[in-house]
Computed example of a mutant assay.
Amino acid sequence: MSKLRVLLTIDEASLGGGQMHVLLLTKYLDRENFEVEIATEQTGWLVDEVRKLGTIVHPISIANKLSWKSYQSIRQLFSSHKFDIVHTHGGTAGFWMRLVSIGLTDRPMMLHTYHGLHYLHILPGTIGFIFQLIKRVIFRLIDRFLLKYTDRIICVCQSDYDRAVAVKVAHPTNTSIVYNGIEIERFATPLDRDIARRRFGFGASEFIFGNVGRLHTQKGHEYLLRAFAKLNNSARLAIVGDGELRYESIGLADELKIERRVMFLGARSDIYEFLSAIDVFVLPSLWEGQPIALLEALAIGKPCIASAVDGIPEIITNGVNGYLVPPRNIEALTQAMDRAIDRPQPLTPFFGSSDCGSARFVAQQMATEIGNLYRVGRKSA
């Protein structure tokens, strides 16, 4: 039996959860059955990483708006190459690839993964609230239309599945849940704490709260900074990530007079080393799909504090293997961080416990489940 030619597509190649998912899928899909290629922007972290695996990368132009250049770029890709399966990740790639595929005479099997349904989340009282409402309606209509031309929808957590079905951008008959996976064996043994701390300039006796996430409204950094400012101790906060709210976040730290205790480390790929160096991981997101950084922090054995939103309670049980707090609740977040300082040890380990179902979060398992969906879909086509 010949290999199935699979094209994985995502709009941006910068480091992020969706890109990490695509990288691990590329790495662990069964190479005896699948020939994997990538379509994304020309340069970026993902491009560098998949090329290390010997994977072909097709540079394409994907715009976040209607663009003839984007249409031509993807049309040319489909004209020049025949793929058995096209698997899209993220709203922009999902829109363009599925749209262009409609007119193909020999259409590949089309799959789309929702890494969180971001456009469904609206923040009342914010600037542009009406625009957010309009965008939500438009994007839902677009995804409902494209669902007709999608062979399989994949959601990375149960909450995304429930929401996608409820708003009719997915249907139970062709929608599956495949949890995000990580390379657990890589995180099972932390790097030596002193070595890791020297790498980031942390003092040996300092108590460090750590956060990983792009500086965007979704990740709740404003609430993290305000909660941290209320702590009556000498702890420090280290934030890995970059984004549109970088300067606003730095300004807020100055305003709260905590700028000497907060470190903005920018976008980095050495997350294993960072998690080895910190004491407690904090993720105060306003919404999520299923955050990979949280899975990695749990795998490395760090106490975790996170918002009780979307896919996070599917990972953390409050008081059992971590602490859950309501989103946007500064007081609750402060109390949880204060409690973690008094008890900076993980609770029940999430990974390695036979009854917690943690095997579903292994990268190899994720790739196996998705590979099975590819095979079943091709047989029924």
Results as ranks from 00 to 15, higher is better:
379 K>W: 14
21 H>N: 04
294 L>E: 04
317 T>H: 15
112 H>Q: 11
16 G>A: 05
278 I>R: 00
380 S>Q: 07
81 H>R: 15
189 T>F: 07
144 R>M: 10
32 E>Q: 12
28 Y>I: 15
333 L>C: 11
222 E>L: 09
76 Q>G: 05
136 R>V: 08
181 G>C: 04
69 K>C: 12
120 L>N: 09
282 V>G: 06
263 M>L: 13
130 I>L: 12
42 Q>P: 07
339 R>W: 15
238 A>N: 12
147 L>W: 01
347 L>S: 08
359 A>T: 13
376 V>C: 15
205 S>R: 04
374 Y>S: 08
3 K>Y: 10
155 C>W: 00
147 L>G: 05
27 K>R: 01
54 G>Q: 04
227 A>M: 15
193 R>A: 12
113 T>G: 06
332 A>Q: 14
381 A>D: 15
293 A>W: 10
123 L>R: 12
83 F>R: 00
309 V>K: 02
285 S>F: 02
219 K>D: 02
100 V>R: 09
37 E>R: 05
102 I>Q: 09
255 E>T: 09
72 Q>R: 14
72 Q>A: 06
306 A>S: 09
133 L>K: 05
45 W>Q: 02
78 F>L: 05
239 I>R: 04
256 L>F: 04
306 A>D: 01
40 T>P: 07
353 S>T: 10
282 V>I: 07
113 T>I: 07
176 S>I: 08
82 K>F: 13
191 L>D: 08
172 P>M: 06
183 E>W: 10
252 L>W: 00
292 I>K: 09
69 K>P: 15
212 V>S: 00
283 L>W: 05
372 N>Q: 02
348 T>G: 07
23 L>S: 00
235 A>H: 09
53 L>F: 10
104 L>P: 09
260 R>L: 15
215 L>S: 08
246 R>K: 08
88 T>N: 00
223 Y>A: 13
288 E>C: 01
67 S>Y: 00
300 I>E: 03
367 A>W: 00
235 A>I: 14
364 Q>A: 04
228 F>T: 13
276 S>V: 02
312 I>L: 01
15 L>G: 03
166 A>F: 11
307 S>R: 04
348 T>S: 14
89 H>K: 06
208 I>C: 02
257 K>S: 04
232 N>R: 14
24 L>P: 05
1 M>I: 14
268 R>C: 06
171 H>W: 06
293 A>M: 10
104 L>W: 09
248 E>T: 15
25 L>E: 03
260 R>P: 15
35 E>N: 13
141 L>I: 12
361 F>H: 14
185 E>D: 14
207 F>L: 06
241 G>P: 01
326 P>A: 10
191 L>K: 10
103 G>C: 07
341 I>L: 11
117 L>G: 03
279 D>K: 12
1 M>W: 09
12 E>I: 11
210 G>L: 02
372 N>E: 03
379 K>T: 13
151 D>K: 01
264 F>D: 06
206 E>G: 01
373 L>V: 12
116 G>S: 05
207 F>K: 04
23 L>E: 04
298 L>E: 03
185 E>T: 04
351 F>P: 05
381 A>V: 14
263 M>K: 14
276 S>P: 07
359 A>Q: 08
74 I>K: 02
142 I>Q: 11
310 D>M: 03
325 V>K: 12
144 R>E: 11
331 E>Q: 14
207 F>G: 06
144 R>G: 14
121 H>G: 07
335 Q>M: 08
267 A>Q: 14
349 P>L: 00
158 Q>L: 02
65 K>T: 02
